[in-house]
């Protein structure tokens, strides 16, 4: 399922939906990077609240966007990570980058 993008001041939000694997990560990556280059946001927020499955491709997606945002002088936040994905996030060592933010009001995924 394709991500939804929204903008607020210097912040770009990506609402991710469904399953993130090697196959779906490619589309998400391409769409997101194109918009980052166009809009050059200061902050990129990856919202995982509607993600039902993620393998290590999701970690690659986060790490890659972290690098791009750093390169452009911005920063990345990973928000609203469901419980089921926490084990993967911890295993990856992403916790030490201090980019995972939790708790925010619920938001429905529009298809």
């Amino acid at each position: 399922m394709n991500p939804k993008f929204s903008f607020d001041d210097n912040s770009m939000k990506v609402q991710l939906c469904g399953e993130i694997d090697h196959h779906t990560a490619k589309t998400i990556r391409e769409m997101t990077d194109q918009l980052i280059q166009q809009k050059r946001p200061k902050e990129l927020r990856l919202d995982f609240s509607q993600v039902s499955f993620m393998d290590s491709s999701g970690i690659g997606l986060i790490m890659g966007r972290y690098r791009i945002m750093s390169l452009y002088g911005g920063y990345l936040k990973v928000v609203r990570v469901p419980e089921g994905l926490e084990k993967m996030m911890i295993l990856s060592g992403l916790g030490s980058l201090n980019i995972i933010e939790r708790r925010e009001e619920p938001h429905d995924c529009q298809q």
Binding site: S56, M63, M88
Partner: peptide
Amino acid sequence: EERTGLGFAV
């Protein structure tokens, strides 16, 4: 391709 090298660890 942004493969993390985590496959077997996972």
